[in-house]
Amino acid sequence: MRVVIAEDSVLLREGLTQILTRFGHDVTAVGDADALHDAVRADPPGIVVTDVRMPPGFRDEGLRAALSLRAEHPSLPVLVLSQYVEQSYAADLLETGGGIGYLLKDRVGDVTDFVTALHDVATGGTVIDPQVVRSLLARRRTPLERLTPREREVLTLMAEGRSNGAIARDLVVSEAAVIKHVGSIFTKLDLHVTPDDHRRVLAVLTLLRGT
């Protein structure tokens, strides 16, 4: 399989290349997000493995590159590696669909597990670091409990059949703020945009079921 690696540290780039070559993969390694884009455009690989923090800003360039690559090529498998994992990053990646992975860099050291994970992602699977999953499970909260008190107020008013404008007047906030809360409610209740569902009704139903 052809793999494109984006990693700015020479040390880790070589380590990754060595491991993947050993398992018979054809590796192209680049050092930043722009080069990653170019490499994918030139010849779409079987999977992209990218670091999060890369030049020029050394912030989340790699993650943003992963997201934009997914937007351009929705079926391109991407495995994101990072020195630390954050749930919010995982959520962003998961929203782009299957064939996605998000792992701590040291998982690469468990070579066989890592290569298995790489194959899973390449074949459309989803691999999320156990640390992220642990923190998700640790919350063990029902979707309703994830709402902030303000979001709960908004949802209650939604259940009374009020429009966003009316809710904004009731709570003495801007309508934009209400729209933000509503969006956040949909996210926390796992209500995604689908052509067949009315999310506002589904959110209210969740409230009524009390789960």
Binding site: I19, F58, D106, V108, G109
Partner: peptide, 23 residues
Amino acid sequence: RDLHDGAQQRLTALIMTLGLARL
């Protein structure tokens, strides 16, 4: 950032190398 670019990267590389050595 120094720790990220330095010690963290080296330790990660060490973990990768040890992983390969174990194979």
